[in-house]
Simulated assay, not measured.
Amino acid sequence: MAAVTDLTRDLAAIPSHDDETDAGDFIEAWLREETDADVTRDGVGNVIARRNTNPDANESVALVGHHDVVPPDESQIANGEYVVEERDGRLYGRGAADMKGAVAAAMCAFRDTDPTVELVFASFVGEEIGGEGARHAIDEGFSPDYAIVGEGTTGYSAPGTTDVAVAHKGRRASTITAHGTAAHASEPEAGENAVYTACKAVEMVCEIDAPSTDVFGERVRGSVVVTEIEGGSAWNVIPESCSITVDERTIPGERAPLAAVEDSGRVEWTVDQDLPPMACDDEAFAEAVRAAAADAQEGEPELVTKPHATDAGWLAEAGVTCVICGPAEQGEAHTKDESVSLAVLDRCYETYRGAVESIGR
């Protein structure tokens, strides 16, 4: 569909890694010109639009994306502008896959769909830095009954197939800090070595069995990994402090018992970031989206899980029933060769339309 391709190209050309304002301006102006929706721009820059808001529409479905991107590679920017190229049926450029292509497909589907439910479009800011836009919108009352989040699900069950994710992991980043007493290294017994204490904490982390769970028959497994260790001030000083960074991939409903490493006065544990996991709580909704995805492609999509945290985690935590379905393929996002298939963009447009139109009928 030329409209989706053109819109993706226009969006992907707008720099939005430091400041999402211009991309938000473009989305807002397009929605006001192309639709009769109630379009709003909130205090942080989220663009939210609503159609079919009459009282008979007793359910609401949202098509959700984000228009911020990670910083571009040097090859993806020229004269302060993003470089966007089309070749071999793909569109190349920062944000093409993550996730301006999905936003464009959702915008066109939002315009073209004839819903019986209230239809919501939302493009958030700050997804790449912890979901700041989604969290603000939720705090301000954003709470559709259902949401299709357009993060990438292509190529999970089979190459080229666009699947429907019913769960994803979250991420809890934390720091374990061991405290000791400094002394000259020639008299180690005069101090307490914080590195040794930290190593005992690392052993405890290694012994933790990360939890796992099932979502509609799909297994989601968490993980707990020590990723950094830092301590000491000089080669001849017993270290009085040592810190350990832990990357934990969380699952819906359970967390690893990291607090067990704490030891009053000697070891403390602090959480630095906690991005929530997501699990769909309505199998009928997930199957409706999967059926729409099946109608839009030759392959047979499956219900799958994603390893990465998305804004769907914040929405699910707030009580929104979510699935994820989008054009980006595994390994495409955040790369210097980031690209998106134009054919899969059209597929996602058809999937979004089909899913929305099937709900409430």
Rank of each mutant, 00 (worst) to 15 (best):
A2G: 14
A2Q: 15
D6K: 08
L7Y: 04
D10V: 01
L11F: 09
A12C: 05
E20T: 10
A23K: 08
A23C: 14
I27T: 03
W30H: 02
L31N: 00
T35S: 12
D36R: 11
T40F: 06
R41F: 11
D42F: 04
G43H: 09
G43A: 12
V44M: 06
N46S: 09
N46E: 09
N46T: 08
V47C: 12
R50I: 13
A57C: 08
A57W: 04
V64L: 04
G65I: 08
P71Q: 06
D73R: 05
I77K: 03
V83C: 08
G89V: 00
R90S: 03
D98F: 01
D98R: 00
M99Q: 06
A102R: 00
A104W: 04
A104C: 00
A104H: 00
F110T: 05
D112G: 02
T113D: 07
D114I: 11
T116N: 14
T116A: 13
E118G: 07
F121A: 10
V125M: 11
E127C: 10
E127W: 01
I129G: 06
G130W: 00
G130I: 12
R135C: 09
A137C: 13
S143Q: 15
P144Q: 12
A147N: 05
V149R: 10
T153G: 04
T154H: 10
V166N: 04
G170Q: 11
R171C: 12
I176G: 03
T177I: 09
A178P: 01
H184N: 03
P188Q: 04
E189F: 15
G191I: 06
N193H: 13
K200P: 10
M204D: 07
P211K: 02
S212K: 09
V215F: 05
E218V: 15
V224T: 02
V226T: 07
E228R: 15
I229Q: 11
V237A: 11
I238S: 06
S243K: 15
D247Y: 01
E248I: 06
R249H: 12
I251W: 13
P252I: 13
P252Y: 08
E254F: 00
E254T: 04
A256H: 02
V261A: 05
S264L: 15
R266V: 13
T270P: 13
D272T: 13
P277Y: 10
M278Q: 06
M278F: 07
D281E: 14
E287C: 09
A288D: 06
A288S: 12
A296T: 10
A296Q: 01
L303N: 00
T305M: 14
D311R: 02
A312M: 06
L315T: 03
L315R: 01
V320L: 13
T321K: 13
I324Y: 10
E329C: 12
Q330E: 07
K336C: 06
V340A: 01
V340T: 04
S341G: 07
A343F: 07
D346A: 13
E350A: 14
T351F: 04
G354M: 03
A355E: 05
G360F: 13
